[in-house]
Design a protein around this nucleic acid. Structure first.
Lengths: 151, 151
DNA sequence: AGCAATTGAGTTGTACACAACTAGTATGCG
DNA sequence: CGCATACTAGTTGTGTACAACTCAATTGCT
């Protein structure tokens, strides 16, 4: 009895994530951001400044992902990074004027692109709920098994 | 009015995909495969040989992803690659004895790991259906807008 | 105060994933 | 037949992601 990728829900999740990326890419290109960079900016537009650790918690990125990403945002002139004075281990990420200004163009981008999916509000909420459930199950599992020995 | 990544369904899909990856990683590590490599082997265990193009269609990978991935599978001794004699443009990917033998250990890995998620069959089918719907919507969109100008 | 353990950020190496491109092959059309 | 066109793989460059590691700063414990 055979199993193909298309038969697997987990494969479908990966495909969906990549296709979402592709859907958002052209619009984000005009902002000069990638999808993970845009998510980072979303956090900063709400809460500025943030430490690298706080960003990592909000985005579920580890330092190996976030450090180079933030360096690119800094190189693009959207953020600055400076050591915290109260705890020299932490680095504070702060929006530049340019980074704050990008919010005007960037804030309604999600809604604008999502509208082209022909997804009703109800469908979107279903989707979101299904994802929350899956992530919760995976978080539970990780808490039980640790990051170590798999099943 | 603020928007954070956690408020967005599309962000949740990305988080879910990454967490799924993390959940499968330890088990796949014992096979010496990554998740995308495992998906490739799943296809080959069902249909052997396959051209790079056919694999790409089944997995939704383009040649930029698949070519180096297949080279790694070849280096690991799981597949061979040879130019098709009927159409010299195509490359046939074929399981080695070692690659075929891996199926014994690999075929029930999906089910085994998925069981640790505490997801009922019904829940899994819900998830799968939700993903199919999203991918269908995104495919529709891509067909309409092309890969070009973003809405 | 002194020292071990922990924490926060960064680095290195490996592996996807996509855009843009190249090169060789096949096909279609005049 | 001969050439333009399309197709199949592969390459290069950029940007996530994660593991495993380093290093400095801080905290906890005695």
């Amino acid at each position: 009895m055979g199993v193909l990728p298309d038969d697997l829900a987990c494969f479908a999740v990966h495909v969906a994530a990549r296709e979402l990326d592709n859907a958002y890419r052209p619009a984000l290109r005009e902002l000069g951001l990638t999808y993970p960079q845009y998510m980072t900016m979303l956090v900063l537009w709400e809460r500025d400044p943030q430490t690298v650790k706080e960003l990592g918690a909000a985005l579920r990125f580890d330092s190996g992902t976030l450090s180079p990403l933030l360096k690119r945002l800094e190189a693009a002139g959207f953020v600055t990074r400076e050591r915290s004075t109260t705890d020299e281990r932490s680095v504070l990420v702060r929006l530049t004027t340019r980074g704050r200004k990008l919010e005007e163009r960037g804030k309604d981008l999600v809604a604008k692109v999502f509208r082209t999916f022909h997804y009703s509000d109800r469908d979107a909420e279903h989707l979101h709920e299904e994802m929350r459930k899956l992530v919760a199950a995976l978080d539970d599992r990780a808490a039980t098994f640790g990051r170590g020995a798999g099943g």
